[in-house]
Simulated assay, not measured.
Amino acid sequence: MRNTKKGLAPPPFDPELAEILPAFAGAAPINMTADQIEKYRAIPMPSIAEQIGNQPVQCVDFTLPGYQGVDIAVSVISRKDHAKPGPGIYHIHGGGMVMANRFAGASDLVAWAMKFDAVCVTVEYRRAPENPDPIPVEDCYAGLVWMTAHAEKLLINPERLIVFGGSAGGGLSAGTTLLARDRKGPKLFGQLLQCPMLDDRNETVSSYQMQGIGIWDRVSNLTGWTALLGNRRGTDNVSIYAAPARATDLSGLPPTFIDVASAEVFRDEAVAYASAIWAAGGDAELHVWGGAFHGFNQMAPNAAISRAANAAREAWLERLLSR
């Protein structure tokens, strides 16, 4: 399928993923407009109990003041026998700034609680369009501050704090990390950004390539950013915390892992973000998975390319936590 606006053909899908992709028809936000947000919000997701299953992991809910003092929820996921300070992983969920909840993708947190004895905190930030910028990123920052302040009680090693998110959660994780740097807030040990949503301008080659195909396309991306920013989207009146791709100084960031698919909207902005970290003298590891679509490693975890991507991510975490 060829992009008719700029004549740009999208990269091919990995054959195994191409076979799987039709199964997501109707559930994947393709050509999503604002009036369809509620439709996609209503699609059922696995509960945290389903994601924990029979593993000896617990999930405990807390309430804390978010942006401007409004209460938000966080959940703490840890091994039931967690008894000494371990790494803290702060999770920000995806959903295009408008969908999903704090338990989306929580299976990774359950796995890391078991493998690394990590204490994982996942935040229920308020979503756009009902709660536009700066509410979502400020809620995320408030949750990170709470996690740090309660590190001793939660048995978290405050010198091993990692921010983790995918898609919109990847963009919010990057924005939260920039806030922590600029406000001299919690000192972060790492940030893990999966297929991050970083650039409201939506003018990259990969954005134009991915129209009407894949899992999250250019139209859906415009809808998500407009929900967050309103008529500020694409103007000069957008902060680096809302759209981290706009940052001109990426110095002073913790070690960063970024991965992205070759056949997705976010490819070029993710590559540019890693390049900007390197240009600032920072530490970043970048993976571009050829033939993959957005969110492939969660949506098709048994595909060969997904297993490779998850192994690379866990290898980075292991190396980071061994320092």
Results as ranks from 00 to 15, higher is better:
1 M>K: 08
6 K>M: 14
7 G>V: 10
10 P>F: 01
24 F>T: 12
25 A>Y: 03
26 G>I: 08
28 A>N: 04
29 P>C: 08
29 P>K: 02
32 M>H: 05
34 A>G: 12
47 S>P: 00
50 E>P: 00
52 I>Y: 00
52 I>S: 08
54 N>C: 01
55 Q>V: 08
56 P>E: 06
67 Y>A: 02
76 V>H: 00
78 S>L: 09
87 P>Q: 09
99 M>T: 12
99 M>A: 14
101 N>S: 14
102 R>L: 14
105 G>E: 10
111 A>I: 03
115 K>D: 12
119 V>E: 10
124 E>T: 11
126 R>F: 02
130 E>I: 01
130 E>Q: 11
134 P>D: 07
141 Y>M: 02
144 L>K: 01
145 V>D: 01
151 A>N: 11
151 A>W: 05
152 E>L: 07
158 P>L: 07
159 E>H: 13
164 F>E: 12
171 G>D: 12
172 L>E: 05
176 T>V: 14
177 T>A: 13
186 P>L: 07
186 P>F: 05
187 K>E: 14
188 L>Y: 10
196 P>C: 09
208 Y>N: 15
209 Q>L: 07
210 M>C: 13
217 D>H: 02
217 D>P: 04
220 S>W: 07
223 T>R: 06
224 G>N: 09
225 W>L: 07
226 T>C: 09
228 L>N: 10
229 L>Q: 08
230 G>L: 11
238 V>Y: 05
239 S>W: 01
243 A>N: 07
246 R>E: 11
251 S>H: 04
257 F>M: 12
260 V>Y: 05
263 A>H: 05
265 V>P: 01
267 R>S: 09
269 E>L: 04
271 V>D: 11
274 A>L: 09
289 W>T: 11
292 A>C: 13
293 F>R: 00
299 M>P: 02
306 S>Q: 08
307 R>D: 10
313 R>S: 13
314 E>T: 13
315 A>P: 00
315 A>I: 08
316 W>G: 05
317 L>M: 15
318 E>T: 15
321 L>A: 11
321 L>T: 09
322 S>D: 13
